[in-house]
């Protein structure tokens, strides 16, 4: 079996075509750039949270498969898990998201519509978005995994290219289909820019043009059932992205909790690899 996988991998890599990932530096915020049609991006990332009040830290890894169906439609599948110090680990669910870009070309503000279905349990910790109010539950993982939730999430993504900067704002609404919690709200905003504005003529990995820096802020605002400022979670996070090669991107972020309910900080790392599965050389 190993030999088969090895051969398949070698063949795939050998015939994959070079294409630079359009990987954004943000972890939570979305901009208006979709996956190139026919390209598959495979990403692994983790969120490590250090809560307040001496609660156990946790790490939530996830796998992300992003595919560009057309120039205006990108789909993404997430598989996620969690491991908590001294409490074990487990699979926490999956998500399937779709992003649609309604406008054909670039505008001052570019809207993208986002729809996601989530089948998760309460142990989910990746915090790809934060909605509603209240902190994370800290019961044992096994107990939390028993509580399933089916959720529908929508985002309005507004994104602009302003000079060398990208500025993006996401308005998030989420509804739990398993129980009546009302409609929960969240937001995220981000701004990022490449470090180098002119591409050098030589091939280089560690040069300014391959780095993106930025900052994003995100949090939950409450729900239609309750708007409680005391229980909101807000974070601000500097982000950095590095296009290591034409197809791979590494990114990192440290999010600082701004409210009592927020974790002290969230440490995030991600690595993405893009390969065209329907393309040309």
């Amino acid at each position: 079996m190993f030999a088969i996988r090895l051969v398949a991998l070698v063949v795939c890599v050998t015939f994959a075509v070079p294409a630079l990932a359009q990987e954004r530096a943000y972890f939570v915020t979305y901009d208006h750039y979709l996956e190139e049609p026919g390209n598959l991006e495979i990403a692994v990332a983790t969120t490590t949270g250090v809560p307040k009040s001496n609660r156990a830290s946790y790490t939530a890894p996830w796998l992300e498969l992003e595919y560009g169906f057309t120039g205006w439609w990108t789909g993404e599948l997430y598989l996620e898990g969690v491991t908590t110090r001294g409490d074990g680990n487990g699979f926490t669910g999956w998500r399937f998201e779709n992003r649609f870009r309604p406008l054909k070309s670039e505008h001052r503000i570019n809207p993208v519509l986002y729809v996601e279905y989530e089948s998760l349990n309460e142990a989910s910790r990746i915090q790809k978005e934060i909605v509603g109010a209240g902190g994370l539950p800290f019961e044992p993982i096994d107990e939390l995994r028993e509580e399933h939730a089916h959720e529908l999430e929508a985002k309005l993504i507004l994104s602009s290219a302003a000079g060398v900067w990208n500025v993006a704002e996401n308005i998030i609404v989420e509804r739990n289909l398993s129980e009546d919690e009302g409609v929960e709200w969240g937001y995220s905003v981000g701004a990022s820019r490449p470090l180098g504005t002119i591409a050098s003529g030589r091939e280089c990995h560690v040069c300014r043009e391959n780095f993106i820096i930025g900052v994003e802020a995100y949090g939950g605002l409450g729900s239609t059932e309750a708007f409680d400022r005391q229980n909101q979670r807000h974070y601000v996070a500097p982000v950095i992205g590095w296009h290591i090669t034409g197809r791979s991107t590494f990114k990192a972020s440290t999010a600082f909790g701004l409210t009592e309910r927020s974790d002290r900080y969230l440490l995030r790392f991600g690595f993405a690899y893009e390969l065209p599965v329907r393309g040309v050389r």
């Binding site: 750039y33 979709l34 057309t70 120039g71 205006w72 054909k104 070309s105 670039e106 990208n166 002119i198």
Partner: peptide, 17 residues
């Protein structure tokens, strides 16, 4: 870009690029 024809938007590149 021309998303209806599969041409991606490259405004994420800095203008000089």
């Amino acid at each position: 870009g021309n998303t209806r024809r599969g041409m991606p938007t490259f405004s994420f590149l800095p203008e000089p690029q």
